[in-house]
Design a protein around this nucleic acid. Sequence first.
DNA 1: CAACATTTGGCAATCGCTTGCCACGAGCTT
DNA 2: AAGCTCGTGGCAAGCGATTGCCAAATGTTG
Lengths: 333, 333
Amino acid sequence: MTTPKRTTVYDVAREAGVAASTVSRAFSNPRRINATTRRHVLEVAERMGYHPNPLATALQSGHTATVAMLVPDIANPHFFGPIRGAERRATAADITFMLGFTDESAETERDKIERLARSVDGFVLASSRMPEAVTVDLAREHNLALINRQVEGLPSVVIDNAAGSRQIVDHLASLGHRSLVYLSGPHVSWLAGERWRALSAGAEERGMAATRLGPFPPQVAGGGAAADAALVSGATAIVAHNDLLAIGILRRLAERGVSVPERISVAGYDDIFGADFCVPALTTLAGPQEEAGRAAVEILLTKASARAAEDGPRRVVLPSHLVIRDSTGPAPR
Amino acid sequence: MTTPKRTTVYDVAREAGVAASTVSRAFSNPRRINATTRRHVLEVAERMGYHPNPLATALQSGHTATVAMLVPDIANPHFFGPIRGAERRATAADITFMLGFTDESAETERDKIERLARSVDGFVLASSRMPEAVTVDLAREHNLALINRQVEGLPSVVIDNAAGSRQIVDHLASLGHRSLVYLSGPHVSWLAGERWRALSAGAEERGMAATRLGPFPPQVAGGGAAADAALVSGATAIVAHNDLLAIGILRRLAERGVSVPERISVAGYDDIFGADFCVPALTTLAGPQEEAGRAAVEILLTKASARAAEDGPRRVVLPSHLVIRDSTGPAPR
DNA sequence: CAACATTTGGCAATCGCTTGCCACGAGCTT
DNA sequence: AAGCTCGTGGCAAGCGATTGCCAAATGTTG
C-alpha cells in the first residue's frame, strides 16, 4: 500500500477558489456558509476524492465520531444482539463503531477504556464487570452507557430481569415445582445479583424454596459442575445464570441419565443462538437484545449532543418475556 | 464526563526539565536518548498520569497502532475464532483492535475500508465478499490481510478447505455413499467456489455423483429451502456450505420426518458453537480458527514493520480436520 | 592538546483540520 | 444619507504529538 499524498482541505480550497476554513465549514458546519458556496465546495471535493482526515478532525475538534463497545466475551452468543443493535445505530448516525473484548476482567475493561479514551466519544459497556465505585469514577471522565447493569447516576439500558425472573418462578410454580436452585454466574456480575434477588423474592411469595449455588463460569464448560451441584441440592427445578451454562447443564444431565424435564426442569436466560435446537430445547428468558444495543448508543449520541443531563441520567428498562420450550415441565411427584 | 485539561508532552517536559521532543522520544524512540534521561522522563510522566494522545501521534507519524477486522456477519458463530485470535494477537502487540461488520455486502465492506483508512494501519478481511479486482485495487492503497480468501498477489491465511473437502468426500465414500449434493453459499463467496471445486473433484475420483444447488443464504433460516431442494435431488448425502445452513437443514429434515443419518447424511463446515449439541450432532470440518485470526494480524504487523515483500505476499494455509459426529452414517441401501 | 567522531537534547516546522475573531458588503431602519 | 444589523468568508492560532537538523557535550585518537 503506497500513500499517494492525500488531498487536504488546502488542495480543495485552492481548486475551489476559497479559503481552507470555508472548505472545512462546508463539511462540518453547513449553516455557517452560503448554500451555493457550499455546494460548489462539496462538488470540487467530490471530484478530487477528498475526505476529511478523521484524525486531524478529532485532534482539533475534540470529538471523534466514534463509539466503542466493550463486551466481556466474544464467544457468548448472547452479545450478538446488543452488538448488532449498537453497530447498526452507530452506522446509521455515521459514527464509526469499535468493538473490544474484556475477557471477563474488570482490569482489562478499565485498561481498554483508558487506552481508547482519546479515540472515541463514548463507551457502551455491556455487562460490565467493574466495581460500582470504579465505574462511577470512570464516568466522571468518560462518556459511558451501560447495558445490563445499573449504577446510580449513570445512564443504562437493561432488559427487565426482575420481572423476567418472576415470570420464570411463576412458570415453575404453575408446573407444581416447590423448589428451585439458581446456579449463579460470576459474583461480580450485576445481573447475577439482580436475578437471584428477584428469583428468591418471587419464590418466597409463591412459597417455594430457593437456593443459590455457585459461582460458576457462565459458559458451557461450567455446566458440568453446576449440574452436579444442582442434583445434590434436591431441587426439582434449575434456573441457570445464562443459556450457555444451561446448555452445559443439559449436556451433563443427559450424560448422567437424568431426564429433563421429567426428573428436573431447567431454565436459562438470554435465548441465545442454540437455545432452540439443543435437547431438550431450552426454556429461557428472552428480550429485545438488539434494541438494548441500539438504545445504549442512542444515549451516548444524545448525551454528546449537549442537551445532556436535563433530568438525570437516562435509565431504559426493556421488557422481557419467557420463551417456554421443552426443558421445563411438571414437577415430578 | 468533564475533560479536565489533559496533560501533554509539554506539561511533562516542563516538569521533567527537558524539551518536549525528549519526552516524545522517551516514548517512541528509546534509543535516541540517554537511558537515564529516559527513565526520569518516564517516571515523571507516570506520576503525572500522562499518556500520549494517540490521535496526535497518528496524525503526525502516520501510523495509528490500530488494525481493523471486517467480518460479514456478527451473528455467525464461525467468526468467533478468527475474531478472538486477531484480537488477542493485536492486544499482545499493544495494537488496538477494531471490529466491523459488513452485512454480507461488498459495498459496505468497501465503504468501511475507505472510511477507516486513515484511522488504522491495516485491515483483516474475513471471508471478504468483494470482487477480486476491487480487492486488488484496494490493496494498492491499503494494508490488507485476507482470511479464508485467496487473491493473487495478496497475503492471506486460509483453512485448508480443499483438503478438508476431500476428507468429507472420503468419509462419505467410505460409508458407501455414491452421490452427494453440495448446498452452496453465496456465489460471491470464494469459499463456496473452493469447496465445490474440491468436492466435485474428489467425488469424481471416487466415482461418486456430485451436484451443486443454491445459492442459499448461509444461515439457519436458509436450511428450509436447502433441505427441500436436497431431498428432491435424490442424493444420499448433503454437504452444506456451513454449519449454520447445516443446522437449518437438520431442523427441516426433522420436521419432514426424514431421519438423519439413516435416510440421508449431512455434513457441514466450520464446527461452530452448537454443532456438537444439535441433533443429531453435526459432522463438520474443523480447523484452527483462532490461529487464522492470529496469523492474519501477524501478517499485518510484519508488513508494517517494513521488512515487507521480501519474497512475495505471504500465504498461510492452516490444516483442517474432519470431526465426525452423528449426522453422517452408512448410505441407505 | 588539537582535531574529529559520537551522543544526546533542543528548536521549530509540520501533520490536516477547526474555530474565534475580524472585516466587508448588502439590506434595513430611521 | 448615516448608522446598524446580518450573513459570509478569510486569517491565523491552535490541537498534541513527531522528527529533521543543529549544536553542545562528551569521548577518541594521534
